[in-house]
Amino acid sequence: MKKAISLAALVAATLPGAALADFPVRPIQMIVPYAAGGSTDLTVRIVAETLERLYPGTTAVVRNQPGGGGGIGTSAAVNARSDGYTLGAGAQGPIAILPHLGGTDYSIDDVEFVGLYARSLQVMVACANAPFDDYDSFIASAAERAPQIGNSGAGGANHISAEAFAQAAGIAVESIPFGGSSEARTACIGGHIHAMVASPAEALSAVDSNQMTPLFVMEDERIDLFPETPTAVEKGVDFTWSSYKGIIAPKGIDDATLNWLRTAIADVVADPQFIEVMTEMGEFVTYEDGPAFEARVRRDGDMAHSVLDALDMLGVNN
């Protein structure tokens, strides 16, 4: 890390003023900490493609380094040489949650935030044969028996969000971990669990065909896809949560290069074709610059910390 910083400083010192004009001269690598084909991977590929289209001559290569709940690839990105040629996909689980579980060689402080390009809104849905079908009956039913809420992995983002909601609403839930969100979805449609947290896009088709029933939206305000579904906030529970997708980098990139990268991501997010393809996929395209992105991650990190503390999972892997 220190070596990388001094190396970058050396390059910056020997090539005064050249960095801006000359960046990028090599392909920019974007590390996705998940296997090819997931939603993070697909959106980063769209970002890379848009970047190449908007900045002719620029090459952006996506590299998948899955494993360890995203920790391995994220570690590779934040520990890479800080010359701006290695970036990472900033996903909620590995940057805001995983360090609290322990076993990672990085923390939020090691991450440089380039920009956020999409948020994934979250809806709590009731599964087939659940004993509730709207927010009020969900809360009433939870008072009698803790509902079984499926998630995509212990200590993962939607495990934390379900438990954080339960904490805020003062109800008890029983979290059931699955190996990935499609396993949880299968169990939900099959009626093997009572509820789960889903993205609006994946919930919409299931709701239309009566496989799932939306309970509440984890936003401040109601969303276009589910205008009838209340938010937790309007039901008097101070709780919002969304997952996000952004671009991160190692700390220590020189200002000129970092500015180039931040402007590039802002341009990508403003591109109409980018917005169209992303929206088709059910992503909620929105731009937040580096500092706003960082503030969001730190806020989530604090919430994850308190939830994991209550679950007695803080630092289990240290």
Partner: peptide, 20 residues
């Protein structure tokens, strides 16, 4: 690797590459 239910690392001996 990671315990499928509790999320705790098992037998990885602190090597992050074996987390899965």
């Amino acid at each position: 690797g990671a315990d499928p239910i509790a999320g705790v690392m098992r037998y990885t001996f602190g090597i992050q590459g074996f987390a899965s």
